[in-house]
Amino acid sequence: MEEKQILETYVLIFISMGIIVGFLSRLWMLKSDIRQYPTLPNGYLIHVTTGFIAAAVGAVAYPALRSKNYVAVTFLAAAIQQFRDIRKMERDSLVSLESSSYTPRGESYIDGIAKTFEARNYIVIIVSLATTLSAFALKKFIKTNWIIIICSVSIGFLIAYMLKQYTKGESLGDIIHIEEVPLEFKDKYNLYIDDIFIMNVGLSSTRDVLLKNGIGFILKSKNENANETIILNHRGQITALVHECSRLLGLERHIRTRRDFKTGRVGLVIVPIIKDSEKLKEIILNVPILETNRKVNLS
């Protein structure tokens, strides 16, 4: 009678353990990037749900093979297809939002976000798979179920942690210095910060608003390293930066960036709704370095 039972109790325990560990690691990873995306509450729910499905797929993969159910592997393929659609879905929804924003995210940024969501689902599959796999492997050596559970759960979380560290991107704060610089008008109408020309402002009332409410920053790479300057001067990177600044602090009127070709510095002038230059500094330093834009050090 025991033999004919479809699922033995310990198999059931191991599978649900894999699902729970995978699911928790998805929740954990969602939390870390709430600053940018996904939107609460519905975007959040979508990713929690797909994370749960990913965990389930990962958790049942090994037990299915073990019961000589090779068809189950095709389900994995189908699941992977589903997760690729998540990337597409994210990209489509973000692209469709572009036109309703004063400052677009930029395609490089969107690509990075979409890829991250896809990758995180794979992390969940890997974590769940590793958890159940290690449980079945340990079953051969250890007879007590609760010791196995403790061991595999910690293995699962360890792998989740390692993958999270591995996929973690750097932020602009790692490579640039920023410096707040007062705005000034040269020849009456040309707006400069330091020696970087920003824009021509024809009306004196606009000039007064800029002088009163504008905040100017100069972004400069930390080292005189060519790579860092290249990253900073990437157009998608600057678009992402402008987007984050204006989204989080609001945009009263202008936001303008200008590159200084000679030195590779970037000048940024913004008239935000919340005039808090400390916050702005923090936002700029926390803008992620886009994955498409990342460079392996040449030197």
């Binding site: 020849d187 009456k188 024809g202 009306l203 004196s204 009332s205």
Partner: peptide, 25 residues
């Protein structure tokens, strides 16, 4: 001059720039 420029820029949805000789475009 500035009043005219800003009045013009509103319906035209244009940008106002100054030139060195005092002309606004």
């Amino acid at each position: 001059q500035e009043k005219i420029a800003s009045d013009l820029a509103k319906p035209l949805r244009g940008n106002i720039y100054a030139l060195v000789n005092g002309v606004i475009i």
